[in-house]
Amino acid sequence: MTAADILESARPLLDVEHLTMRFGGLVAIDDVSFAAAPKDITAIIGPNGAGKTTVFNCLTGFYRPSVGRLTLRRNGQEHLLERMEGHDIAQAGVARTFQNIRLFSQMSALENLIVAQHNKLMRASGYTAFGLMGMQAYSEVEAQAVELARYWLERIELVDRADDDAGNLAYGQQRRLEIARAMCTEPALLCLDEPAAGLNPRESVELEELLLFIREQHGVGILLIEHDMSVVMEISDHIVVLDYGQKIAEGTPQEIRDDPAVIRAYLGEEGSAGAERGGGA
């Protein structure tokens, strides 16, 4: 797909317009605009400190943007994310993972996935009242929730560890479980903050397959922060490059690969063709 195709296909899933984030005197993001199309994998790349995670934090309600508009479109509805609380944003359909894995480490893998379906289950339990009375209707919804969890556990090959504490899983397994947990919220947009960090090459390939599966089978748009250029170039449909809080380039992987501004940002003035930095393949 090319950028032109995307523009034709539909209105974007996410519109980021003039996003600016200031901390005191420091401008972490300076007037950044981009869009993410539905069912696309959009990568945000840039050197350390470029403001990538800050974009995520604005999108998911951890920071309130100083300026800018963030619009999520889902089922014909528009959600203005910059005005919403973090938990409302999650309910509106934005799920995320974290740079440093944030699982509920003393809860089992299965419980992590059940907690992710909190709002659905909360409604079914009549905000606890029906659940306390042990009503049938709630048990059925809970059984469905377990089925969804089992589906994702199968996807990430962790079924046999379902009842183990999440904190006892191996690093790569924890990364996958966090993605599964985000998917259990049944989002429209999945934000992944460096999902390939610390994975070995085989695990990286599995991750790519998982992300492509999520996009194909669940129609979820993915926003991806990643340093591993092999992963980014392999699976992204669209790439946004940030440097010092500003967008310096945007386009398809091929366009980005050849963009002189990007090469300069990554390698300094005398940079040459290879835009891949140390951590890459």
Partner: peptide, 25 residues
Amino acid sequence: IRKLPVGRAWEALREDETASRSLGI
């Protein structure tokens, strides 16, 4: 109540409030 969604949400908040919020709690 521990086995109901609200009970699990309590424990999730105890473990990690930031992550809980990102899941819509």
